[in-house]
């Protein structure tokens, strides 16, 4: 290759071969070509190169790429932005809402049996809101919600695992898109009840699915200072969930020993699950905190959105 040719010269030659030089440029280049054998030779080499490339044997499609009706079926919820960012943001927002709702409910409804620890007040909320790693927050609250929803967190987790795949399947089936949202709506207020096993299963399914997502991503919990701090007040009610989650996800809870001591499980009001959302032994919710419940509901909806978009994205 001639050493005295500049990139600009090559650009001119290349464009000249394609006939896209302006009239003035073309005339200028042709004048130079008369005087400069190097330029002329390079033009011919480039021309030969293009001819050679163009002469490559044509590649044929190895099969037909026609679409089957199955392929052509539009993905559901196409109107939703199914980017990872959207899912992440809604999941984060949902987490915040649920966390706030839970904190509100738990702190306002402090009964002698389950008095909220002092740390679980505004500072804790602030801490949670400013936590840098949103995955940490998510997992923390998954744990929180699972355990808060039922003392039998292990059971809930089993529910969750089974139901998570079921939920995904049903979403994949693509029947009615309202179903997941309904499932979230129903348990949300009841989920705050420490003694409400059946809804806990439903809520657990939702959070369980989320948990699988997180684990799929290969996240392992590395306790950061804020998370560890948060775990202490949280552990009052959260221990069972944390323990069972840890078994599945190689989490290493930092502050569980002390937490276990402080936990006082409350007996169920009756051996069978109460359909009524306000069981007498739960004075906490005799006067339900409207704001907390609203926050939980909104959080649940957002989480459904995040899950739905994630599932859709995975499919496409």
């Amino acid at each position: 290759m001639a050493r005295d040719l500049t990139p600009h010269d090559y650009e001119q030659l290349s464009a000249y071969l394609d006939g896209v030089l302006s009239e003035a440029e073309r005339r200028a280049l042709e004048a130079r070509l008369l005087d400069e054998p190097d330029l002329r030779r390079e033009l011919e080499a480039l021309r030969a190169t293009v001819v050679l490339i163009h002469g490559l044997p044509p590649v044929k499609a190895p099969r037909d790429f026609t679409l089957t009706a199955q392929m052509a079926r539009p993905p559901r919820l196409l109107f939703l932005p199914t980017t990872a960012a959207f899912s992440a943001v809604s999941a984060a927002a949902a987490t915040l809402l649920v966390a706030l709702g839970l904190v509100l409910l738990l702190s306002r409804s402090g009964s002698p049996a389950a008095a909220p620890p002092p740390m679980l007040d505004e500072p804790a909320v602030a801490l949670q809101m400013t936590m840098p790693a949103e995955q940490e927050t998510t997992k923390q609250n998954m744990t929180a919600t699972l355990a808060a929803a039922t003392p039998l967190a292990e059971m809930a987790l089993e529910f969750a695992e089974a139901a998570a795949s079921a939920a995904q399947d049903s979403t994949l089936q693509g029947e009615d898109q309202a179903a997941p949202a309904d499932a979230m709506l129903a348990p949300a207020p009841a989920g705050a009840l420490p003694e409400a096993p059946p809804p806990a299963g439903t809520l657990g399914r939702v959070f369980g699915a989320q948990a699988e997502e997180a684990f799929d991503a290969g996240l392992t919990r590395t306790p950061s200072p804020p998370a560890a701090l948060l775990a202490q007040p949280a552990a009052l009610t959260f221990t069972p969930g944390a323990a069972s989650l840890a078994a599945q996800a190689t989490m290493t809870p930092t502050s569980l020993p002390t937490a276990t001591l402080t936990r006082t499980p409350r007996p169920s009001p009756s051996p069978t699950p109460q359909p009524t959302p306000l069981p007498p032994p739960a004075p906490a919710l005799a006067a339900p905190d409207g704001l907390g419940i609203v926050l939980l509901l909104a959080g649940g909806l957002l989480l459904a959105l995040a899950l739905a978009t994630t599932v859709i994205r995975r499919r496409s």
């Binding site: 990139p7 090559y10 650009e11 030659l13 290349s14 464009a15 394609d18 896209v20 480039l46 293009v50």
Partner: peptide, 9 residues
């Protein structure tokens, strides 16, 4: 234009 010329060169 410039990428094509660099690629050909």
């Amino acid at each position: 234009k410039s990428r094509l010329s660099r690629a050909r060169a």
